[in-house]
């Protein structure tokens, strides 16, 4: 049975400046959803507001009409790479073990079982040989794969990724997208903040297009059209040429 995740009328402002205005949409689970929009459109803000990480002026996020707070432990978040302190004294393996923390709850420590599970998640992203490295010793793509492994370790139902493909190598990008598609086929829901328009059709099956307000949300073939995209990206020339190639 599929769940319904709905965002109702979210508005967010920073110091009086409106960043998101009355954004609403609804999806059933089992989709790989791209959040698109130009720079400064509020993509990351939308992601953080959905997770309740920043204060909202108004709005609700619900899963099957229950507040998202009831599902916290089933939510995995993969941060933008620039938000992580890569010199933190932690190894690749221990980073993935963190993914088991939500299910452990307070006071219980990760044991052998959790560590073995973390290793299996590392194998899924092909990073098992780097288990004992410090995370700063990896390339950008490898770092992103490790954080995806951490999200897998969480056994979550909802995945939120903030710009996972920025500054990473092609093979890492392929590994990551194939895992996201596999999660989708298992009925999980994956939200991805994304700004490169070239591979949108290959990657996502649903889109959220925003520029402070919701421009459109729905299946890729419905939303990813020149006239709709042009409304989000107000400077049409460069953009539209890029799109023509694909459409």
């Amino acid at each position: 049975m599929s769940d319904i995740i709905s965002v109702k009328d979210i508005s967010v402002s920073y110091f009086g400046k409106q960043v998101l205005e009355n954004v609403s949409f609804e999806f059933t689970s089992g989709h790989l959803i791209g959040i698109l929009g130009p720079n400064g459109a509020g993509k990351s803000t939308l992601l953080k507001a959905m997770l309740g990480l920043i204060p909202k002026d108004k709005g609700l996020i619900e899963i099957n009409s229950k507040p998202i707070n009831d599902f916290r432990k089933k939510i995995a978040y993969v941060p933008q790479r620039s938000n992580i302190d890569w010199s933190f004294p932690i190894t690749v393996k221990d980073t993935v073990v963190i993914g088991t923390y939500p299910s452990l709850g307070l006071l219980r420590r990760p044991r052998k079982e959790e560590k073995e599970w973390a290793m299996r998640c590392l194998e899924q992203v092909g990073m098992q040989d780097f288990a004992n490295r410090q995370i700063g010793e990896l390339s950008g793509g490898q770092q992103q794969r490790v954080f995806l492994a951490r999200a897998l370790a969480q056994k979550a139902d909802y995945f939120f990724l903030d710009e996972p493909f920025v500054g990473i190598d092609v093979s890492s990008e392929e590994v990551i997208i194939s895992i996201l598609k596999k999660l989708q086929s298992e009925g999980k829901t994956v939200f991805v903040v994304h700004h490169d328009l070239t591979k949108v059709k290959n990657y996502f099956d649903e889109l959220i297009l925003i520029n402070k307000q919701l421009i459109d949300a729905g299946p890729v073939e419905k939303v990813f059209k020149t006239e709709i995209m042009a409304r989000a990206y107000e400077s049409p020339f460069l953009m539209l040429k890029d799109l023509e190639v694909q459409l």
Partner: peptide, 19 residues
């Protein structure tokens, strides 16, 4: 609370996301 101190120092956003 070693576990909680570790995760909130390393990745505060993830810590907040899982509650």
């Amino acid at each position: 609370f070693y576990k909680e101190l570790l995760v909130s120092s390393f990745d505060e956003t993830m810590a907040a996301a899982y509650g």
